[in-house]
Amino acid sequence: MKRFVNVFGKELEVMTKGEHGFPIVILTGMGCAFDEWHEVSEKLSKANRVILYHRPGIGRSELNEGKRNTEATVRELRELLDVLQITEPFVLLGHSYGGLCAQHFAKRYPNDVAALILIDSTSHDLDRLDTLDLPVMNDLSSDEDWLKQCQDYAERTETELTELIQPTLAPNQSKLPVDVQAELKGFVCRPNLYKAMLAEVESWYDDARLIKRLGNLSTTPLYVIGRDADFEVDRGKADGLPESELRILEGTWGQLIREQTILSADSRLVIAEQASHAIHLDRPDVIISVVEECLSRLKPSRQFE
């Protein structure tokens, strides 16, 4: 069920599925729609309560004028959970930039998080990616080019964006229900999406340094799911990118993913074979399996609370 929830005076678009069972909160990646999580949320909601929402400016959530950083996301999520009357510890999933936000939340409110699942998550050492020697890849598509495009899109109308982008779906998005596909096409044509992304990018290096300073998670159960490096290299080669640079990028990204297991003394690393960064689309079964394994560990302990 989709609805709007007032959080600090702004309406956030929220989707909840399932009425009983363990609460599961999913934080999506930067510029990503929660509709993409259809298969994961449908399966998990059969026995659990699944909560997804769009951060301010994303989807149909109102854009606020405040600073868009992970601290703001932590505050908003804490307030949203209060409004939804989620009072018990929950399983927190975070994908990509949403994983960075999830790390921040878990460190701020360790007693609220029964377990943390990071899905190809942005690292608190993300600046290490900027030191890589990737001349061909950077020349074809640099961060500066992407930011300029976001700025251009942020200044256009929804009608202009629809005509300019002429949105199409990735193969795995095309397998989703027709109504979900329609939502995804409209999602990328809203100028506030690009305003929100620009605002989040502006702060993410400072966010990462702060999150790193907050330390580790002690013994919070932690699952780290990473993408398939060879799969990503093959995809990049098919697009004409040099294998040598792809190997450098995937080697560093993979190392950052593996290092996230150090955040907790109770951690497990899972590599999603045949999956790109969009693991929730390529291998939703892997995410579902990890969550179910996590819940099987947590539920027995609740019997004695």
Rank of each mutant, 00 (worst) to 15 (best):
N6Y: 04
V7C: 06
G9V: 04
K10W: 00
E11W: 05
M15T: 09
K17I: 00
E19R: 03
G21H: 08
I26P: 00
L27F: 10
L27W: 10
T28H: 13
G29T: 03
G31K: 01
F34V: 06
F34D: 02
E36R: 02
V40R: 03
K43A: 10
K43H: 14
K43G: 01
K46N: 02
K46W: 08
A47F: 12
G57S: 09
G59N: 07
S61K: 05
G66E: 12
G66C: 00
R68T: 02
T70F: 10
T70P: 11
A72L: 14
R75A: 12
E76T: 00
L77P: 01
L80N: 01
L84S: 07
L84D: 05
E88W: 04
P89I: 04
L93I: 09
G94P: 07
L100I: 05
F105A: 02
A106I: 04
N111E: 15
N111C: 00
D112E: 07
V113W: 07
A114M: 10
A114W: 09
L118D: 06
I119G: 05
D120Q: 14
D120L: 09
S121Y: 01
S121R: 06
H124Q: 01
L126F: 12
L129K: 03
T131K: 15
L132S: 06
L132C: 04
L140T: 03
L140F: 14
L140W: 04
S142E: 08
D145G: 03
C150S: 11
Q151P: 06
Y153F: 14
E155T: 10
R156D: 13
T159D: 15
T159C: 01
E160R: 03
I165G: 07
T168H: 01
L169W: 10
A170I: 04
P171A: 06
Q173W: 08
Q181W: 11
A182D: 15
E183A: 13
L184M: 11
K185T: 08
G186M: 01
V188A: 05
N192I: 02
L193W: 08
A199W: 06
V201W: 11
E202F: 11
A208C: 14
A208Y: 04
I211T: 04
R213L: 10
L214I: 00
S218W: 02
T220P: 04
T220V: 10
Y223V: 13
I225F: 12
G226D: 04
D230A: 14
F231P: 01
G240A: 02
L241F: 12
S244M: 02
E245I: 14
L246Y: 12
R247F: 06
I248F: 03
E250P: 05
E250Q: 15
Q255I: 00
L256K: 04
L256E: 06
I257A: 03
E259F: 06
E259D: 08
Q260H: 01
Q260N: 12
I262M: 09
S264I: 07
A265E: 12
L269K: 09
L269Y: 12
A272T: 07
Q274M: 12
S276E: 03
D282I: 06
D285C: 00
V286K: 05
I287D: 02
I288Q: 05
S289F: 00
V290H: 00
E293I: 03
C294N: 03
L295A: 06
L295S: 05
R297F: 13
L298C: 07
S301F: 14
S301H: 07
R302H: 09
E305D: 13
